[in-house]
Design a protein around this nucleic acid. Structure first.
Length: 270
DNA sequence: GTAGGATGCTAAC
DNA sequence: TTAGCCTCCTACG
């Protein structure tokens, strides 16, 4: 689930359901109990996202810093449908109308303003944050011998891009994932950034990742509709061995910097 | 029933 | 570069 669009959507959903009100804060699992006790029945002022980091602000008390990692997941619902707390729920927020359960996060910790600022400082620009500057990313990647595939996943370079957006945006721009960052042109980078802004905003809106252009949809191409179980329609992500939507070449997979990398060798030539 | 994998990241070597 | 962490779901017996 969790790339940047998921986290920004979670921030918006938290603002809708919980902001500016007192909230019950518990940790059925126990690992966040001390902080939960401190925050319980206080006002959750605002939720904010930067890349894959979620921050829940409690006035003078600080922020809950949440990172879902690979497995973290939220389940939501109306207060009336709140299930009994189970021992995998790290954090439960609840008020008269809604509840939100958090399971399996890499991070769920109460931090100070200064600690929050330090996290912002080490993250790169986020295509989903209004006013974030793609130049900062360009300055890093245009001097790097590292592959563009690895750079896009480096949260210090760009915040919020994960394995799906990485694979898909490189496909959409016909860029070989193994090209060094410094071999990209400024125009290529500007196009990638602009595309990430569009794709990820749509991801927030729909709460899933769709990257296939209208002219390549199954309907337009006369193919049977097929949605990957990650939830959206994509060109290459997890389509190993299947024909490329555009050129029918088999989509390839390789392990790259400990992550699965997917690409079409014909549409993204070296 | 169990193994393995997954949209992530970090500390330690 | 590798192991380790967190949980859930699927594939395979």
């Amino acid at each position: 689930m969790p790339e940047g669009h998921t986290i920004h959507r979670l921030a918006a959903d938290h603002n809708d359901a919980f902001a500016d009100r007192e909230v019950r804060v518990t940790s059925p699992q126990g690992k966040f109990s001390d902080s939960a006790a401190l925050l319980d029945r206080r006002v959750l002022e605002e939720a904010e996202a930067h890349g894959k980091h979620l921050f829940l602000g409690f006035a003078d008390l600080g922020w809950i810093h949440i990172h879902l990692g690979l497995f973290g997941k939220y389940t939501w619902g109306p207060a009336g449908a709140m299930p009994p707390p189970t021992d995998t729920v790290r954090l439960r927020l609840a008020n008269a109308t809604s509840y939100a359960d958090l399971r399996g996060p890499t991070t769920c910790a109460l931090i100070t303003d200064a600690e929050k600022q330090a996290i912002h400082d080490r993250l790169g620009p986020d295509p989903l944050r209004e006013g974030d500057d793609p130049d900062r990313a360009w300055r890093r990647l245009s001097r790097s011998r590292t592959s563009i595939a690895a750079l896009l996943m480096d949260q210090k370079v760009v915040a919020g891009v994960g394995n799906v957006y990485r694979a898909e945006v490189l496909f959409r721009h016909g860029i070989d994932p193994y090209r060094a960052g410094r071999d990209l042109t400024r125009a290529e980078w500007d196009a990638i950034w602009a595309d990430l802004v569009v794709l990820m905003r749509e991801g927030v809106r729909n709460n899933r990742i769709d990257t296939v252009r209208p002219e390549h949809t199954p309907e337009a191409m006369g193919r049977p509709p097929r949605v990957d179980d990650h939830g959206g329609e994509v060109y290459v992500y997890r389509r190993t061995g299947l024909p490329c939507h555009i050129c029918s070449t088999e989509v390839r997979i390789a392990e790259h910097a400990a992550r699965n990398l997917f690409w079409c060798p014909r549409c993204q030539p070296a």
